[in-house]
Design a protein around this nucleic acid. Structure first.
Lengths: 168, 168
DNA sequence: CCGTATTTTCAAAATGTTTTGAAAGTACAA
DNA sequence: TTGTACTTTCAAAACATTTTGAAAATACGG
């Protein structure tokens, strides 16, 4: 397979996977393009490579920066802004976990605290089922939260080998 | 807070969280409703509770069954079908991980194998950057795959306590 | 079997999301 | 300060997904 074809497939698949994760196609494609770029590139490069409008590139780059996956790079002597992505995929993964934990898991656990305090007779099966579900979500959520903290902090190889050892 | 209000909030938030995960609002809301229902319920119950059409309920229930999160239940003496959800949230989580691993991670790793075999001079920085990224994704993906297998197999409490021990 | 209750399908409508592109805003060099 | 290169914004258009509802299919009791 030729490089150009392989690149194309990579970008297009990365875009498709993104949509299963609440990420829009263009954003995922920009990320893919940056991942395989040996040097930082500009908005114009991205526009040309992916055939999308300036506004679209601008919005999605900004969002990638919010997620901590892409950085603005100053190239001396150049007036344009350049962009580059974190290349270590494990760090990409932990960065995403960190953000999603903050944006989704933590607020959800807060909500569950509120909902757990529902009024009503705990012997009523509807009340009981509700409270049980909410408590169970809290419990599982807290566990997930701890696990994610551990994962995020741990060095990859270290973690895997430790994990594999205790599992064996 | 009254039960009805709490239920309403629970269902609506669960629906909102779903959309960050590539799951549509109604599907997530049906799941939420089933989670807090003490008894199996029918399509008509769901239609009424969530104010959605029959077709919509039918499609999304089927999808939840595909994901292994909901089951059809036969109630003796009743002609209608009833539905109930897995209530143990940890099992819900592992079930989702299992499915996503199969549907997304495994195919992605297959694709990376293909892409890694790209032609071209490895000294060309574009070729090198591409191959490096693909290899890195493969490596990280395989690790994630192993970790997920472990998590899916492990009993929750067992796993957490072992994990916390080695981390300390 | 037949009639009715129930489930499923699917094209069209409604709704939601993404993309465009041109105008406004900014920042830099001279 | 001014002109120009560049970035950002955002309303409207394009596109994609979800929802509806009625018709078709199916299953079930008698």
């Amino acid at each position: 397979m030729k490089l150009s074809e392989a690149k194309h497939q990579f970008i297009s698949s990365w875009g498709a996977y993104g949509s299963n994760w609440g990420i829009n196609r263009t954003m995922a494609q920009i990320h893919a393009l940056l991942l395989i770029s040996p040097m930082p590139i500009t908005q114009d490069d991205i526009m040309e490579e992916l055939n999308v409008s300036r506004g679209n590139v601008n919005m999605n780059i900004r969002e990638l920066i919010n997620w901590g996956l892409v950085q603005r790079v100053i190239v001396p002597g150049e007036r344009k802004e350049f962009f580059s992505a974190e290349k270590d995929i494990w760090r990409v993964v932990t960065q995403i976990m960190k953000e999603r934990k903050k944006r989704e898991l933590e607020p959800m656990l807060k909500l569950m605290d509120t909902l757990e305090a529902v009024e009503g007779d705990k012997k009523d099966k509807h009340v009981k089922a509700f409270v049980d579900t909410v408590s169970n979500i809290k419990k599982t959520g807290r566990h997930a939260d701890k696990m994610l903290d551990t994962l995020i902090r741990a060095e990859e190889s270290w973690f895997i080998s430790a994990l594999t050892k205790i599992i064996k």
